[in-house]
């Protein structure tokens, strides 16, 4: 598998020829099922583009079974990502909570972090959660915030994959698991030295002569 994503570059330099756009063309025109609340597919918006399969090169190889998953989805029915990796409440829970111990397979992988950052912008996560995940329409995902559904790797995976009731879409029917793990890896890196493409600080105020009138 060749490395298709270039070394970290500012988001502003991303353009249409980027291979990530293949993934996006796939997804453009697909309504998100979480909005309908029940069915796995929604109406295509006007101008929808036909959806080829997610290219293997973008997804990072064929879908593999994730470490630590308790169940194997039946082939051909539930999309591979659309099954929780974290604990399901119930009397069957024994021993250690896998949510607190499960690792992100992309821990300490700088190129995965960079891809996660690019996905965060390209999949419009930034539009809801803020340009650098500081919140807005959706909640702050940076370390200063308490996550409603937990911020362990498995919790992040499930929130992205399954969606949440106040408007977080269920991306698991659209994104393969390792793409979701890369997004989770980016979230995990926020506020650390490893956070890619950190935000530039805002200017304190505009220069005095920059606009008129002045009062």
């Amino acid at each position: 598998m060749c490395l298709l994503f270039r070394w970290p570059q500012p988001i502003a330099a991303m353009h249409g020829k980027h291979p990530l756009m293949l993934l996006l063309i796939t997804l453009a025109g697909l309504a998100l099922p979480a909005m309908s609340g029940c069915s796995a597919s929604g109406p295509s918006p006007p101008g929808a583009v036909a959806s080829p399969a997610v290219p293997e090169s973008v997804a990072g190889g064929p879908v593999q079974q994730l470490p630590g998953t308790a169940t194997q989805p039946v082939s051909g029915t539930v999309p591979p990502a659309f099954a929780p990796v974290g604990p399901i409440p119930g009397p069957q829970m024994q021993g250690e909570d896998p949510a607190t111990t499960m690792q992100n397979p992309y821990d300490n992988d700088p190129s995965a972090l960079e891809q996660g950052r690019q996905l965060f912008v390209a999949m419009n996560c930034a539009g809801c959660h803020g340009g650098h995940a500081g919140g807005g329409m959706g909640p702050d995902l940076r370390p200063d915030h308490i996550f409603a559904y937990g911020n362990a790797p498995a919790n992040l995976f499930d929130s992205i994959s399954m969606g949440r009731g106040m408007g977080m879409p269920a991306w698991g029917t659209k994104l393969p698991p390792d793409v979701i793990w890369k997004l989770a890896a980016y979230i995990q890196s926020l506020g650390t030295q490893q956070e890619p493409d950190k935000a530039a600080p805002a200017p304190g105020h505009a220069p005095d002569s920059i606009a008129s009138p002045s009062y």
């Binding site: 453009a28 309504a31 295509s44 390209a122 930034a126 539009g127 105020h205 505009a206 220069p207």
Partner: peptide
């Protein structure tokens, strides 16, 4: 920057940073 249309999600296409004006 280029915005990607995914129905139901932000179709935004810009990073904006605001700060107090002059004066």
């Amino acid at each position: 920057h280029k915005a990607n249309y995914i129905a139901g999600t932000p179709y935004l296409g810009a990073d904006v940073t605001m700060f107090p004006g002059p004066g």
